[in-house]
Design a protein around this nucleic acid. Structure first.
Length: 408
RNA sequence: GGGGGAGUACCCGAGUGGCCAAAGGGGCCAGACUGUAAAUCUGGUGGCGUAAGCCUUCACAGGUUCGAAUCCUGUUUCCCCCA
């Protein structure tokens, strides 16, 4: 069956948004032209390793690109790296993955992943493969033959390996196989385009080499910039704790968005929304907090609904921006036996409520002025102050931790 | 198999006999300020204690010494090089 596509230049314009690098760029135009002439879609590859269970906004950057390709009429091919996950991606890491996953863990993760990926990519029109389907069948002799296609010197041109080598940090043998495996996936599924971050350049190029050796057409690397996390500096990642997960609640996402440094908003708009870049510039020239709220709402709405996003923004404004009390104040049980004549020492109160793990920590909190009581947030000034506890009393440990005391 | 190097608090990392509960940075916590829980600035960051002070910590176990993160012995883990 033959398909019709948008004009090549129009497609390119859509594809280029938020893309850092296309290698080789001219070839993409040719591929698109060819696809249009022949009426056949391009095969777009994106591989994910089911190493964790949380898909975060960093992952959605290439996934969104995948969705755009789908809407342009091309074929999405998702690779679940159930075998590559056993190795762990060494890209951009300066040490080996510490934990080896079992096959069972990987399988559970894969299922969860696909559900989450489905929030961005149209899974009804996507092909899904597991690279275990082909790697699992390979004999040791096959593996050796694959290894024979890549030299150690080639591997050492990778910056991450080279750096570890210079710094005398360990590089394990199985890690060396990672890029080779990833490249072999491209051969197996005959990809025309591979999506990923710029740190994947090495593997993407290796895939071109292998495809050429197999007399296949070579894939084009379409690489997104690396999305920085909430700290505004390092890449968004689970291990760094600077991520926004797409399965998080609207309000949790909202809180995290509002922590973003201002100077990364432009990147977020470009990579995570459809807002035309001219409009982005206009927004950022205006009130920055308003722009951040707009950004947060647009992204949250993609994973929840516009109403949820509005509600989350309103709640944030009320509870954190404004003076209203939080709506989710937890009750914490306080053992009445700790009280003497309805009173307790301030330090003890904070440790008993599990706000502080030691008396010293509680003392510091009080000295810093973060310990407060009641609706009107009266500060506790001395760590040995006797507090008269009433049932339902509000206790604050800084701005973020609070509870109502429940006597029991 | 041989040789060399290393293991310090959440992380990185200084410290080679007392002034070390241990520099500095990062992270984290709190405060001020602000349009934000951003940025910036300030303070804090082993435990117990109202305090004076006491106790535990520098891979582990012993030892030397009035006194050890620091010296010695053994154990152990890791890295690099040569084979």
């Amino acid at each position: 069956m033959s398909m019709t596509f948008l004009p090549v230049e129009e497609q390119l314009r859509i594809i280029m948004r938020g893309i850092e690098k296309i290698v080789p760029q001219e070839e993409l135009r040719k591929k698109l032209q060819h696809s249009q002439d022949a009426g056949t879609p391009l095969r777009i590859k994106y591989g994910i390793d089911p190493t964790g269970i949380d898909v975060h906004l960093g992952h959605t950057v290439p996934l969104r690109k995948m969705r755009q390709f789908q809407e342009l009429g091309h074929q999405a091919v998702i690779i679940i790296g159930n075998y590559t996950a056993l190795v762990g991606d060494p890209s951009g890491r300066d040490e080996a993955r510490s934990k080896q996953l079992t096959e069972a863990e990987v399988e559970t993760n894969a299922t969860t992943y696909l559900t989450q990926v489905g929030k961005v990519v149209d899974m009804s029109r996507a092909e899904v493969h597991r690279n275990g389907d082909w790697f699992g069948k390979m004999s040791f002799a096959n593996v050796l033959s694959l290894c024979g296609r890549v030299t150690v010197a080639q591997l050492l041109t990778r910056e991450d390996f080279a750096k570890r080598y210079r710094q005398e940090k360990p590089i394990f043998l199985h890690e060396c196989l990672y890029p080779v495996m990833q490249a072999w996936d491209s051969v197996q599924i005959r990809s025309d385009v591979e999506l990923g971050g710029t740190e994947q350049l090495y593997s993407f190029m290796l895939a071109r080499d292998l495809q050429a050796q197999e007399n296949l057409t070579q894939q084009i690397a379409v690489m997104s910039p690396i999305l920085v996390g909430l700290d505004g500096v390092r890449r968004m990642g689970k291990s760094l704790g600077n991520y926004i997960g797409i399965s998080e609640s609207p309000y949790d996402m909202m809180k995290k968005f509002m922590q973003l440094p201002d100077n990364v908003m432009k990147m977020y708009f470009e990579l995570l929304t459809e807002v035309p870049l001219d409009d982005v510039d206009r927004l950022l020239a205006g009130h920055l907090k308003a722009a951040k709220v707009t950004l947060a709402k647009l992204v949250i709405a993609q994973y929840h609904s516009a109403e949820d996003a509005d509600a989350a923004a309103a709640r944030w404004q009320a509870e954190i921006g404004g003076e209203a009390l939080p709506t989710d104040i937890p009750n914490v049980i306080l053992d009445a036996r700790l009280l003497a004549d309805r009173t307790i020492t301030a330090v003890k109160l904070f440790t008993a409520l599990n706000f502080c793990t030691s008396n010293g920590e509680a003392r510091r909190l009080i000295q810093g002025g973060g310990a407060k009581l009641g609706e009107e947030k009266t500060a506790i000034t001395a760590h040995d102050q006797q507090i008269t506890v009433t049932d339902g009393m509000l206790v604050w440990a800084g701005k973020k931790k609070y509870c109502r005391v429940k006597l029991a």
